[in-house]
Amino acid sequence: MEVLRNKAQDLLAQGQAQIVIGYEAGTGGIRRPSFARTAADTARLVWDADCISNLAGYLTRPEIKRMGKTAIVANASTLRALLQLTAERQLAEDAVLALAVAEDGTVTELATAQAVTDHVAALPDALSAADREQMNLLASMSREERWVYWEKELQRCIKCYACRSSCPMCYCGTCTMDCNKPQWVPVPSHALGNLEYHTVRAMHLAGRCVECGECGRACPVGIPIHLLTCFAEESVHQQFGQKAGASAKLDYALGTFRPDDKESFIR
């Protein structure tokens, strides 16, 4: 922890970063995002196995960008999202200094997209064992059973958009959900409104989701909503052989034309 705090302090003191995004202790000891802009702020930074949330969503926020060069304490999810945001040209390559903290507390500076890519390649799969088990369970269900499962889960949705707001890939200035000319998706959180919202969200994240599970953790009513986007992502992986968050140079699978596409209709 001390190594991390000292590193953050040095970066701020030497002007290599104007803000360090990391984690601090929150309510009841949980870990939450933290923003250090002064030496004193760095004393709040913590790092341990509970620092699981994906912080990359802050990188595209105008309030943060205005502050200058950003350093970010990055777990695997944050690193993957950082690469994906770079691939989607939301962040300039090498715009962010990632700080990867090892189990022994040592901090590695990842200053380039290449460095992040190499680092991520050595990390284990994103999905937790529990989520993998749940994904497998859903895959083993019949279509009817899956429908019943999601119908029951999605009826709990209150359309607070916590899933959208906490997803690093949901950076659009104006979301389709907020467009009303025409009103593509019903606003109320009734059965149809919820189903359409989450279907559209999953489709928009197919090929872009870094499987961090942030949307599922964000959901105040406990819908495992990340399983939908993870499923969409993994379908793209199976079909097109590429994974979001693996590289800073990645074409969007569902929006890229290739002369050698395996489908004849597009050639």
């Binding site: 939450r32 933290s34 309030e63 943060i64 607070c160 916590a162 707001s165 906490s166 964000a218 105040p220």
Partner: peptide
């Protein structure tokens, strides 16, 4: 509000 993600939860 720097930390706030702007949802309605």
């Amino acid at each position: 509000s720097l930390r706030c993600v702007g949802c309605g939860a």
